[in-house]
Design a protein around this nucleic acid. Structure first.
Length: 779
DNA sequence: CAGTGAGCGAGCTTCCGCTTGACTT
């Protein structure tokens, strides 16, 4: 046995003299194939060390010396790597960016390798050529870049671990603040305030349908008036003018234009498009992309680069030529403009461009299809477009009508893919083909319509548009966009929610055959799905941070410190000096914040007075969250009620507040006990004596009637009866019961519950089988 | 499961950026 082991080990040693360490296991697998049997390729699974978790992990007095630890879940891996490293030449092949360089350095430290001589290799694409080339010219670990990472890491820890405790003291325990998350929350708070402050105003837009004399059907087109009216009277008066007007073309222009394809996907643009086109959340997108990556179907999904490998470019050209012909192919190299991009990887693209479709879950197929189309389209020629614009004047008014038309002369990349936008589709005044017109042409109007519209508040962010904004500001990285959103939701700073649309009616005035007619139309507006809005606590924390730590949550803070990190990376300053420059003023701010008496960080907002009692009604954050209060008279207690989901202290009105006191409502006596509707921890309920039943989604606790409430109680009783009646019982052993639970049938035996094995039919179980299940599940 | 809202205060919470699995009540 010992001999055999020894021989195997020797053989392995002889065959694999080299150990290559990369960050991702999927990458390791691919590279191992390229390198052949002299190389064993292992993965570090990202970082292998981090600052000590239980305390600050930085020795400030000792020049900010970091205290690094190997996390317990990394111990085994590190031991394995160390063992392999002892007998082999190590090649550190972590990503070519700040974090990757640091991983390489931590590996030298932990594996006991000399920094000066250990081979460090990098490649931006996972192709055989790129990897063999990298092996040809190894370098050593760049300590300046490593130090820039240490500065980044230490700064984030200092900010996070000094700010958060200030919040625990001044606002609420367990809160958090950080360079990235606090700015993300700030974006949402500021947007929310714009929305609260916004007052929608009506206006009238005028659209006419014109035609050329003689050929009405073929030449009918739409044109919009360049002026918008503020009031109905103005709009109506204008239509009156139109009735007596003569319309004439003053300008007709046709201009050729080009539309270009979008760059290949990065993490952020993939998240945006998957959200717009497939309705996927940011974390869903990442998890599906991870699956595709692990199956070797796409390149790495956490990237800020739009670069494609030469090999991929060639494959695109071949594929486009095959599918659409050579005239559709255009060789393009895209450049990254993103702030702070590190470009350690390629863009997100299919691993094999000739693979147009894949097997997998529906989500995997759709996301792959999106990636395939975007990649291939990025290498296709621009679309050729003819844009026509026509200006129409009136004989009796200086107002002008405009019509624009667009005709695609050559589809180019549009044949495959067109990027979506975040904005709602603009109300079109009739893009499409315009009839041939020339200046001086006389036009007739079929009808002219003035439609009442309303100015709209800026839209709330959704996950993907927040990521887009963060990327623009250089805040966060591809690997942290999704987790950051999870964090700010988990901290209770932000909620993701839907909003029901509201109905409103608007006026439409139409001039046709010399007569103006009026129509009332209704529409829904303000419907929202999966939008992010700040909570009261999110707003309070943001305001506090703004008042005490303005420089830290400044939108340019990250961009500014990034410049400093770059100086460290260039060797222009030591990282300790850089951090020292930051920490001095920062720590003073922390001390001052703690010393500043902040009388009640959360102040009550006075809403008005209760019409019944005349007492003050106010909203504030209480022990159990946001609430409204009607102050009691002298020596009397106040009345309290919690805010509903979606309501904010900052924007709740007196009427909305008073409505909250309508609960609990007593609906009257039913079978000897009162039926009471209330709002509990788990939502609206109806109580009958000691029995409770939840209200259905369609029920409104403020308006629900006696009959419906009684019905809910009866339904609930029926359910409990069904749940308590065992599916199976045995005369021989009354302790043994097969019951129906929330997760299906289960066995209840002597006070303990047991799961049924897969495939068991509850109604057919015998006592023996049940006893066996109980016995076998005992451990 | 099903409101609460006073005050005291032990012990705990927290960052960002690299990577994947565990986990099922």
């Amino acid at each position: 046995m010992a001999l055999r082991f020894c021989r195997l080990k020797k053989q392995g040693y002889a065959m694999q003299e080299n150990l290559v360490i990369v960050e991702s296991p999927a990458k390791a697998k691919t590279i191992e194939k390229f390198l052949g049997k002299d190389y064993i390729v292992k993965s570090s699974f990202g970082h292998i060390r981090d600052l000590s978790k239980k305390d600050l992990g930085i020795n400030i007095a000792d020049g900010f010396a970091p205290v690094y630890e190997i996390p317990s879940d990394k111990r085994k891996l590190v031991d394995e790597l160390a063992k392999l490293a002892r007998t082999k030449t190590v090649w550190l092949a972590s990503d070519e960016d700040r974090e990757g360089e640091a991983i390489a350095w931590h590996l030298t430290e932990v594996l006991g390798l000399p920094v000066e001589t250990t081979k460090r290799i990098v490649f931006h694409e996972i192709t055989k050529r790129a990897i063999l080339e990298a092996i040809e010219k190894p370098r050593t670990v760049d300590m300046n870049l490593v130090n820039a990472q240490q500065a980044r890491r230490v700064l984030d820890r200092l900010v996070g671990f000094e700010l958060s405790p200030v919040l625990w003291k001044k606002v609420k325990p367990s809160l958090s603040a950080g360079r990235v998350q606090s700015v993300a929350v700030r974006l949402l708070v500021e947007r929310e305030r714009e929305i609260i402050a916004f007052r929608s105003a009506p206006y009238f837009r005028v659209v006419a349908r014109f035609y050329a004399a003689g050929d009405a059907e073929k030449t009918l087109f739409k044109a919009e008036l360049s002026h918008r009216f503020d009031t109905r009277d103005e709009a109506e008066a204008f239509l009156g003018t139109c009735a007596a007007a003569e319309f004439r073309v003053v300008k007709a222009e046709e201009k050729p234009a080009q539309r270009f394809p979008a760059a290949p996907f990065t993490t952020s643009t993939l998240q945006q498009e998957a959200s717009r086109k497939l309705g996927m959340s940011v974390s869903q997108t990442m998890s599906v992309a991870q699956h595709l990556y692990e199956q070797g179907l796409i390149t790495y999904m956490r990237t800020d680069s739009v670069n494609l490998s030469t090999q991929a470019l060639a494959q695109c050209k071949e594929e486009i030529t095959k599918l659409f012909g050579e005239k559709y192919s255009a060789w393009r190299n895209y450049k990254t403009h993103t702030k702070g991009a590190q470009e350690a990887h390629e863009a997100i693209r299919p691993s094999y461009i000739d693979r147009q479709e894949i097997e997998g879950t529906p989500a995997e197929k759709r996301l792959y299809d999106l990636i395939w189309k975007r990649t291939v389209a990025s290498q296709m020629v621009a679309a050729e477009i003819d844009r026509t614009s026509v200006v129409i004047e009136m004989s009796n008014s200086p107002e002008l009508f405009n019509a624009t038309g667009e005709v695609v002369r050559f589809d180019g990349f549009l044949r495959l893919y067109s990027e979506s936008t975040d904005d709602e589709p603009a109300e079109q005044s009739g893009e499409g083909v315009l009839p041939k017109m020339a200046a001086g042409d006389l036009l007739l109007s079929r009808d002219i319509t003035a439609t009442e519209r309303f100015t709209t508040a800026p839209a709330r962010y959704n996950e993907a548009s927040l990521v887009k904004r963060m990327e623009e500001l250089g805040i966060g990285r591809p690997s942290t966009y999704a987790p950051t959103i999870t964090t700010i939701i988990n901290r209770g700073y932000v909620v993701k929610q839907n909003k029901e649309g509201q109905k409103r009616s608007y006026v439409q005035l139409t001039l046709a055959s010399g007569k103006i007619t009026e129509k009332q139309v209704t529409e829904t507006f303000g419907k929202e799905k999966n939008r992010l809005s700040p909570t009261d606590i999110g707003m309070v924390v943001n305001d506090y941070l703004e008042s005490q730590f303005a420089p830290i949550i400044d939108y340019n803070f990250t961009a500014n410190v990034e410049k400093e990190f770059d100086r460290v990376a260039d060797g222009g300053i030591t990282w300790e000096k850089m951090i020292g420059n930051f920490y001095g003023p920062f720590h003073t701010m922390v001390d001052e914040a703690i010393a500043t008496q902040t009388d009640k960080v959360s102040q009550a907002r006075i809403l008005g007075s209760d019409p019944k009692t005349g007492h003050v009604v106010k909203a504030r954050i209480g022990r159990y969250g946001p609430m409204v209060e009607i102050e009691g008279a002298e020596g009397e207690k106040s009345r309290f009620a919690s805010l509903k989901k979606g309501q904010l202290i900052e924007s709740i009105t007196l009427d909305e507040a008073l409505e909250l006191f309508a609960l609990p409502r007593n609906l009257g006596e039913y079978e000897g006990e009162d039926l009471v509707v209330g709002l509990g921890k788990f939502g609206p309920y109806v109580r009958h004596g000691k029995k409770f039943a939840s209200l259905a989604k369609s029920d409104d606790p403020y308006t629900i009637g006696f009959e419906r409430a009684a019905e809910l109680i009866r339904e609930r009783e029926e359910q409990t009866r069904a749940a308590n009646t065992p599916l199976r019982s045995f005369a021989e052993d009354p302790d043994m019961l097969v019951k129906n639970g929330r997760y299906g049938a289960y066995i209840a035996y002597k006070g303990k519950n047991y799961r049924l094995p897969k495939g068991a039919v509850p109604a057919e179980l015998t006592l023996e089988e049940c006893l066996q299940i109980v016995a076998s599940s005992k451990k």
